[in-house]
């Protein structure tokens, strides 16, 4: 465990010393701040607009940061040849991968936490309150970015950052559109296409589970402005995210175990 934590701390240190990350964070904060201006344009719905925009900005930029950090995790080590001194150390290859993932999770926790603080700050300045539903929503977004970072790590264990980034964003988009695609499957004429789409949907994570505000959950309309999901739902969604992430990590470990570092 000590070896995994050493790699995790180093991954965290590398991420927080990366200037591109700060640029992304700057845009996220700018967008959250901009919600004040947009809110002023709405009539008596300022808090609602700030909450919606703030959550959307936190979610969007967390995903972008997760993709950016995740796809570079392994590739950078190979490109810079740092893997040539890490792997010969007395560690297992899977320890290296888990260290990288935990480091990324830590980085994402700090960044999502920071964006949430800015969002809550803006909200309070504008006269709103930090409600429990907002904390639930932000936690679900955090679990979503954890899933995305495992997907990015999996792709980056065997392909370039560009392709890994492309595949991960594709998984994110399809994952968010899960209910729409599932609704469309019965209407598909071709049986083969139907089976193929169903198979793909089994592999893609249902990211809509984490993006519940304004969606139907078990036939009930949920929103941060009205009735929101229960803690039990949050727990189940978290368990789903962790199990899915675990499976993807297992696949990444299998790929990584026999990989040649040329």
């Amino acid at each position: 465990m000590r070896k995994i934590s050493a790699i995790a701390v180093n991954t965290f240190r590398e991420a927080i010393r990366n200037k591109i990350l700060y640029a992304l964070l700057f845009f996220a904060v700018a967008l959250i701040m901009a919600s004040i201006v947009v809110a002023r344009l709405s009539l008596h719905e300022e808090i609602r607009v700030i909450e919606d925009l703030g959550l959307a900005a936190t979610s969007l930029f967390s995903v972008l940061i997760a993709v950016f950090v995740g796809v570079n995790l392994v590739y950078k080590e190979l490109e810079r040849k740092t893997v040539f001194f890490i792997i010969p150390k007395p560690i297992y290859r899977w320890e290296f991968l888990w260290g990288k993932l935990i480091g990324t999770s830590l980085t994402l926790a700090v960044l999502v936490g920071f964006m949430a603080l800015v969002f809550f700050g803006v909200l309070m300045i504008m006269g709103g309150a930090v409600r429990v539903v907002l904390l639930k929503a932000i936690w679900l977004y955090y679990v979503e970015v954890l899933v995305i970072s495992t997907v990015a790590l999996f792709f980056s264990s065997f392909s370039s950052p560009f392709l890994s980034g492309l595949f991960t964003i594709l998984v994110f988009v399809v994952g968010r559109l899960t209910p729409d695609i599932e609704m469309f499957i019965p209407r598909m004429g071709d049986e083969w296409l139907k089976t193929f789409t169903q198979a793909v949907m089994y592999c893609i994570p249902d990211l809509n589970l984490f993006n519940v505000s304004g969606a139907l959950v078990a036939g009930e309309w949920v929103s941060i402005h009205g009735e929101f999901v229960t803690w039990l739902y949050v727990g189940k969604a978290t368990a789903y995210g962790l199990i899915y992430g675990g499976i993807v990590m297992f696949l990444a470990m299998v790929v990584f175990r026999r990989r040649d570092f040329v």
Binding site: R13, E14, F84, F85
Partner: peptide, 12 residues
């Protein structure tokens, strides 16, 4: 082990 043309984490 010392690899050829070693490159380490340059931010450290």
């Amino acid at each position: 082990f010392l690899p050829e043309n070693p490159y380490f984490y340059d931010y450290l």
